[in-house]
Each structure stands twice: as structure tokens, then as C-alpha cells.
Design a binder for these strands. Sequence first.
RNA 1: UCCUCGAUAGCUCAAUGGUAGAGCACUCGGCUGUUAACCGAGUGGUUGUUGGUUCGAGCCCAACUCGGGGAGCCA
Length: 463
Amino acid sequence: MDGVLVKQIFQEPGLYLNKPIKVSGWVRTLRVSKSFGFIELNDGSFFKKLQVVFDETLSNFQQLTKILISTALIVEGELVESPGAKQPWELKAKRIEIEGLSAPDYPLQKKRHSLEYLRTIAHLRPRSNTFSAVFRIRSLAAYAIHRFFHERNFVYVHTPIITGSDCEGAGEMFRVSTLDLEKLPRDREGKIDFSKDFFGKEANLTVSGQLEAETFCMAFRNVYTFGPTFRAENSNTPRHAAEFWMVEPEIAFADLQDDMVLAEEMLKYILTYCLENAPEEMEFFNQFIDQGLLKRLDNVITSDFGQLTYTEAIELLKKSDQSFTYPVEWGVDLQTEHERYLTEQVFKKPIFVTDYPKDIKAFYMRLNDDNRTVAAMDLLVPGVGEIIGGSQREERIALLEQRLDEMGLAHEDYWWYLDLRKYGGTKHAGFGLGFERAIMYLTGITNIRDVIPFPRTVNFAEF
RNA sequence: UCCUCGAUAGCUCAAUGGUAGAGCACUCGGCUGUUAACCGAGUGGUUGUUGGUUCGAGCCCAACUCGGGGAGCCA
């Protein structure tokens, strides 16, 4: 491939202007007259399109006037300044080779489509403006996350996708099994005999890499995981998927404050990186998806996140003149309407809510001195809701065992997790970032199905 | 899983219980600088499925399927 990328042309036009170049790409739209025509060519390298001008001097002009949207072309010609208002330059074609024809029933049109319709053609939707922008941002954000952690000497850990511990404690899991569902092996009590299964025990897809990440944290100090996560919950909302990606850092010799500083820096880093490296895509979202997006993101980057304790949040909600469907009371978890009120009405920016009652949080969260709250934090952002959930972990083995007992969990299921506290345990903390929720926040897209290339949700695993 | 709204041409949408329409796409024709190009003509439908009410159902009723929004669960 000896041609030039459209991205290179836009980045350094001086190198190519008034010179012969060769580009290849797909027709996004075309307009033809009797003796000439215009093609807007997208080559995949860049959000913007290159306008190609062609006329009847081309040997295949007649055929070119008949091509359809999404035809693949290789174009040779000269890059010249454009008299048109919408583009600084254009490619005056001397030769256009048709690489692959398209068909009249191509489902994507020049005009705007609904996101719901595009979801039904997930194999073609990355060719649309919106999804081209979404998935380039998704790629950049993933890279930004790796960059952020590597700049800070974090080690990237690949925690297992298949987990043998049925005790990760976060929701319904997908079972992994090779047993014949038509004739399941039974033990003497008539229960399914998982010792006959592939792993010799029950196995599931992971719902979190946290417990395993903690083991590496106690060796490498600062680590993170970044990979797919699975929840078999029957939840049908724009914010939930059965398969999604999660970023889970875990830091040693660190407390909840350190954890929140890390979370805030990370989120700001991702936003900044995408704004700097994909300005065209971000501008597109600001124009067509969410008009207040850039202003809001800029506000997030330049201001400190809010912080309040759960107890303070309850007081605030009780004092507010807002009428809530669900009554507010210390000890019950915050409802979506409460979270929205706090982050969208009161603070109007991301806020950390900390120190939740221990009874509504997981066993591994560190007990506070008041004996009734734990060192947990949720980061709530306007529009998306909970984007990060984290905590300082309970490093005191006696208290951890006590919490296991209180929650009716068997010590032997957590033997290696408890060992971490036995052999030089330190205070440590971590959090989980819902990657897709971050992308939603970053792009203004309000349905998680539209930030995943091929989303898996209840009743849907097409493509 | 619950509440609620919806499903009409390939797409986006119209249509008092009385012959199913428009724009775009597509096909054909016109047009020498277009920008979701423009102008003219044409093709395109078992109105999500099944059943019911009615002389007559896209429209009313029921169930189901799928989709949107809200809730729960959470990231």
C-alpha cells in the first residue's frame, strides 16, 4: 500500500498540496452531474472525509456516475485547494479504480438514522459518523488508561476470565460447564455432581478481578486489571450489559483518600487525552449528540470533584425540598433519584460519596472506627450515575474473618485471600471503573449498547 | 423482573372505524462547482404476530414478540 492516509493529509497538508497522491477508501456520499461529480471519501484513518472531484475525462466516468454509497475506491490525482466553502482542499482525480462495488440495498443512507436502527445492523454501523466517532474514542480511551497507569509504574495484571471461586460476591454469574445438559451427573443426594465437570468444580465467568488483583498488589505494589467482566443479571436498562469491560486498579500502602485521588486523576487523564487526540470526534458529539458536552467535560477537568460522606448525603437529602419517591433514611442505600439529585442538582459535577453503612457494602471493605460504616466510595457523575465503585480493603485479618462470619461466608472459600493478610499485609485500596460508562460520559451517548461494538444484553447476542 | 410508551414502504414519519400517503433511498431522465446537491418521472405495503369485536380494523380489545423511557440490581 503506497498511498497516503487522509489523516496525514489533514495533519500536514503542506506535504501533499499541489502534488500527486494516491488514496483509498469508501464512498460516504456522492453527487454527480452530466460531466463531473463529487465523492466524499472516508479511508478509515480519520473522522473527516476527503472530497474527490472527477470529470468526464476519466475513462470510466460513466461507470463512476453509477456507483453507490460504500463502494471501495482507489483514487490517484492531485491535491488542490478547493473553491468550495466546506473543505480547504480536494483531490482532483486522474484515475479512479473501483476496488469493490456496493449494492442498492446498502442499509446506511446519507441522512440521519436512529441509534436503535443502527443497532440492528451492528456489522455496518461503524461506517456511520456517530459510531466511527464512538469506537475511535473507545480505542483512544483504552490506550489512555494503559498510558496513565504505566506512567505511574503500575503493573498490568491479567486476572482470569474463568473463575473457580463462586464467592466473588457481586451479582449473578454465567456458569462455565462442559457437562451434558441432557443428562447431568448426580451425586448420592441427587445434586449435580460438579466433580465430573471440566474443572472438577463449579466454574463461572468473572464478575470482578479484584480479589486476584489484590494478590498482585501485595507483590507489585501498584497494579491494575483491564478486561471483560460478565454479569448474568436480568437488568434491562441503558446502563447495563451482560458483558462489559472494567478497569480495576489496586494500590498498596494506600488509604481511601489515595484511592479517590487516583480515581480523579485517572478520569481527568482519560478525558484530556481524548479531547486532545480526537478533537474532530469530540466536536461531532458536542454538535450532534449532546450540545453541552464539551463545556461539561472542560468543567470536570478543571474543577475538583465534590466529596461528601454517606451520612452527610443523607442529611442533605433530608433537608432538600425535593420530593422523592423513596424516603431517605440512614442505613438504606441511595436510590438513583437521590444520586441524580446530588450530582445533577446540588453539585452539578462528579462527586465522591464515602463511608457507607457496612451492612449495604461488600465484606472486604475496611471497617471505620465508628464500627458502623466502611471506607467505601462511589463516584457519581451527572447523566450516567455510578461510574466508579471502590474502597479501602480490610487488611486486619481478625476483622475480615468477623465480617465473613457476619455475612455467612465460609473462611475456607477465601483461604488465599486471607493469606494476603497473614504474610505482610498492608493497608491498600482500589476501585472498579465501568469502562463503557466512562465512554458514555465522554461521548454523551446515553445507551451502553451504543458504546460496545457488539453488545450482549438480556435476550441479545447477535453478531 | 416491575411500571410506562411504542411498532405503518429499505430508512424517518403521516393517515375521524370507511379506497394506506409523504420525504429520503433505489431505477430512469435532466443539470458545468456540489456540500444530507437540485429538478422531473417511476418502483416499492398481508400496517410486528395470533386471536377477538364490527357490515367494515392501520385505528377498538386480549395475548405474545421486539424496541424506547423509568425502577430494581450494579460498573
